[in-house]
Design a protein around this nucleic acid. Structure first.
Length: 217
DNA sequence: CCAGACGTTGTT
DNA sequence: GTCTGG
DNA sequence: CCAGACGTTGTT
DNA sequence: GTCTGG
């Protein structure tokens, strides 16, 4: 699964990956739920950069402060009432350059970071939804799709985020939804790497460059 | 008809 | 233990 | 996902 | 909002 990730890639590299102009953005070393994150979506046929609250809130949610859903299972996203409209009509590409997983050892929670083999940026399959609060405030929200895990996730659990290859970005954004099943698969373990990082990552309030520094396992 | 659910993950 | 916040 | 709060009253 | 259960 994926509830914590990083986006600390220079803007120029993200512009190259997505083929659009991107505004200056802060380097992020520990993105957590409820925070504002960027994503690429379609406006008509044009890719546009937008900002969303991480944690999708279904349109019909009446709570004052709903938590929202950080992840949606790709196997069922097309049917679930909370996600199906977004999956059909509001898919997005969520830029990242790594994500975190935790290994529980006794009482300790030890964080690891997973990246692509070359350490470069990639896109996670996302869906977005606009929620209107009881007070009438509109909030753009998103969730990340998950699939079964590859061997790199073995020591953590059996889910991982769906990573969309650059060659498939257009297909993910344009659909149609019925044809997207083959994109919602585990990324090859051979093209990823995984390494321990400092437990300071555990606190979602800690967001500094040393979050991504490899340490000995 | 109305009420109530609507979701993910990991852990035990 | 359980819920909320990030 | 993990961290941190979880409560009341009166006084400063 | 929409579907399911009673």
């Amino acid at each position: 699964m994926c509830y914590r990730y990083t986006l600390a890639t220079p803007r120029a590299d993200l512009e190259k990956l997505f083929g659009i102009v991107i505004p200056e953005l802060p380097l992020r070393f520990n993105i957590a739920l409820t925070q504002i994150v960027p994503a690429v979506r379609l406006d008509g046929d044009t890719r546009v950069w937008g900002e969303y609250r991480f944690g999708l809130i279904p349109r019909w949610t009446r709570d004052e402060k709903p938590a929202g859903f950080g992840n949606a299972r790709s196997e069922t996203v097309a049917e679930k009432p909370s996600f199906r409209d977004a999956f059909r009509k509001r898919r997005c590409l969520v830029p990242a350059d790594g994500f975190y997983e935790w290994e529980t050892v006794g009482k300790q929670k030890l964080p690891w970071r997973l990246t692509l083999a070359d350490g470069g940026p990639f896109a996670i399959a996302g869906i977005h939804e606009t929620w209107t609060s009881p007070a009438g405030v509109e909030v753009a929200t998103l969730a990340l799709l998950t699939t079964s895990a590859n061997a790199c996730l073995e020591r953590f659990h059996d889910r991982m985020p769906v990573i969309i290859d650059p060659a498939q970005h257009d297909r993910w954004l344009h659909g149609p939804a019925e044809t997207l099943g083959e994109l919602l698969v585990p990324y090859p373990a051979e093209r990823m790497k995984v390494f321990r990082v400092d437990t300071r990552v555990n606190s979602p309030r800690y967001d500094a460059a040393d979050c991504v520094t490899p340490i000995d396992a």
